[in-house]
Amino acid sequence: MSLTLYGTEFQSRLLLGTAQYPSPKILQESILASACDIITVSVRRESSREKAGQHFWRLLQETQTHILPNTAGCRTAKEAITTAQMARELFSTDWIKLEVIGNDDNLQPNIFALVEAAQELIAQGFKVFPYTTDDIIVGERLLGVGCEVLMPWGSPIGSGRGLQNPFALETMRAYFPDTPLIVDAGIGLPSHAAAAMQLGFDAVLLNTAIAKSGNPVNMSKAFALAIEAGRMSFLSDPIEQRDMAAPSTPVAGTPFWLETP
């Protein structure tokens, strides 16, 4: 049941954002409770540039998870590229979750700048995890410039609205059967995460739904369970929906003394 991203295998299919937790301690406990293998860290917004955020990053490194730095808050391709370079140096990783935000109102990705930045970063040797929309043409362009993972939104960042367009996500899954697809952003409830996994998505990335819940540690566990449940369901070939009831016990063979009068 493992997940392979850029040649590395992972057990957990939950990727956890590290912003907005009540304290680093609760963040650490949430990471442990969810048993996630990958955490994302904002280089620009949550921590400051340079090595000033070192203490916080050391705490994250103590969790022994794989760190996926992100370019949250970047508005242009150039800004995202600079942030990615800074992240590579700070975290000694060539992984980058690429976010280029087009609009502060719904934090929608600017797909044009996204493709441009992805192309440049891949040329520079980065392994890019692009935060994108559910548009398959954009997905094709991203794969065309060398991305090996796509991370479409479920709904706008932090909105907690779940999968707003399951049809588009389903199409995306069918269109890119062999590319790891991770639903990133918009998840509010474990059931949303389970729904994404049931559609056949490879993993789910989320932050606010756990960090801002009343009990982040329990909520991260709830998400981990939901993601595992959704994945197992997908692999178990769920039944088709029907219009009429279908008794699970064959009625014709029921002995007369067990039939209800």
Binding site: E46, S47, S48, E50, A52, G53, Q54, H55, F56
Partner: peptide, 10 residues
Amino acid sequence: IEANTSRNAT
């Protein structure tokens, strides 16, 4: 902001 040093406000 998680940062151990300060110079100026951004």
